[in-house]
Simulated assay, not measured.
Amino acid sequence: MVTWSAWPGERFELGEGLRSVGGRLVMVDILTGRLLDLPDGEPPRVLATVDGPLGAVAPLGSGWIAAAGEGISVLGGRVLARLLDGRMRMNDGVADPRGRFWAGSMAYDNTPGAGSVYRVDTDGTVTEVLRGYTVPNGPAFDATGSTMYLADSAAGEIHRYSMSPDGDPGPRSSFARVHEGSPDGMTVDDEGHLWSAIWGAGEIRRYAPDGSLTQVLEVPARQPTSVCLHRGRLIVTTATHGLPTPGPLDGAVLATPIDVTAPPARSAHLT
């Protein structure tokens, strides 16, 4: 039986984007536009706030690159690209092993196929690389960056792409399908297995590199949103968004001991 503990303090409407950075744990609360630090045993602390939704961040030197509002920017610095209109927002994102930042977009009303995935190269160029997603989540990369996993949350499917050294995705293949709930935030561990939060099912799932399901952990919250392996624990964010009567642990940040490790969040690079 899995035993979970909860961080003290706030319950989040849409907490996501857990990252292990420099020995500490950070997350975003998307709809309030906050980047948060999660000290052990203490309530979350606000590191930065943006005007609009904050989909995800990756470390960038001593700061952060962010999928924020309607585009991608350096927090407290330059805007790299304004990509969207008021019907859309940025969602999940991550840096790959080569220092490129990847982030998805989605419509506020979940318009089918309206979302895209963008790549920020190290020279600051922003390119739309994938289209036709409704709610793209992840992506997550293997240790070499030669494989990218991307959740098509609305379709209940996780896709896999072979990546060129230049960051161009090859043909899409189906990696795993979820029949109850939706795949959300993901990470790859040091054994090459993919972990995914399953929104709506109250589960965390671990998949082998061949796509076989190897482990299912039940979470005492209905809407887990992201996962992180940090200092001997599996950490999970959850959300109250859309729940008419949230339970006591809906929206909490949860942790359970685990003997699996993963690399810390990779840093983005800009020249």
Results as ranks from 00 to 15, higher is better:
A68W: 07
I258V: 15
F12A: 11
S105E: 01
T147K: 12
I158S: 05
G192H: 07
D85Y: 09
W4I: 03
T125D: 08
T125P: 05
T134A: 09
S196V: 10
V74A: 03
G167V: 00
P209K: 02
D40M: 01
S153E: 04
M1H: 12
T32R: 13
E191Y: 12
T245Q: 13
L234C: 10
E218F: 06
L14I: 12
R206A: 00
A140N: 12
S116K: 08
L194F: 06
V117W: 10
A67Q: 13
P97K: 06
M186A: 08
A103K: 05
I258Q: 11
P139K: 02
P136C: 09
L194I: 07
V253T: 13
D166N: 09
R11E: 02
V26C: 08
A265K: 12
R266I: 03
R231V: 03
P139H: 10
I235T: 09
G41W: 08
L234A: 01
T237F: 04
A255G: 02
P209W: 08
E42M: 01
A95L: 14
D190F: 06
V135G: 00
T237I: 05
P112D: 12
W102T: 08
P263D: 14
G22N: 06
F141H: 12
G22T: 05
T225L: 01
T245N: 11
D189H: 11
V46E: 15
V188C: 07
A262W: 09
S196R: 10
G124K: 07
D85E: 10
D37E: 14
I198G: 07
L36Y: 14
S212F: 01
A143L: 15
P257T: 06
F175N: 08
V117Y: 10
F101N: 09
L270I: 14
C228M: 02
L217Q: 05
V79C: 14
W199A: 00
A208P: 08
S146M: 05
P224H: 06
G41K: 09
E42V: 08
T125G: 14
F101I: 07
M106S: 11
T3C: 04
A103H: 03
L270R: 10
R89K: 14
T271E: 15
T127A: 13
N91Y: 03
G115A: 12
A255K: 00
T214I: 11
G115S: 14
H179K: 12
R24L: 01
R266T: 00
R231P: 05
G41V: 14
L31P: 02
S162I: 00
G138W: 02
G104F: 09
G99R: 02
I72K: 01
T147G: 04
G251H: 03
E10W: 13
M1K: 03
N110G: 00
D51S: 02
D142P: 11
P244C: 11
I65L: 09
L35T: 03
G63N: 12
D166G: 08
M1C: 09
R177K: 14
T147R: 15
G185L: 10
Q223H: 15
Y108F: 15
S20F: 03
L194N: 12
V216K: 07
A262P: 12
I204F: 06
I204S: 00
W64N: 08
A221F: 04
V129S: 04
D184M: 07
A151C: 15
L38H: 13
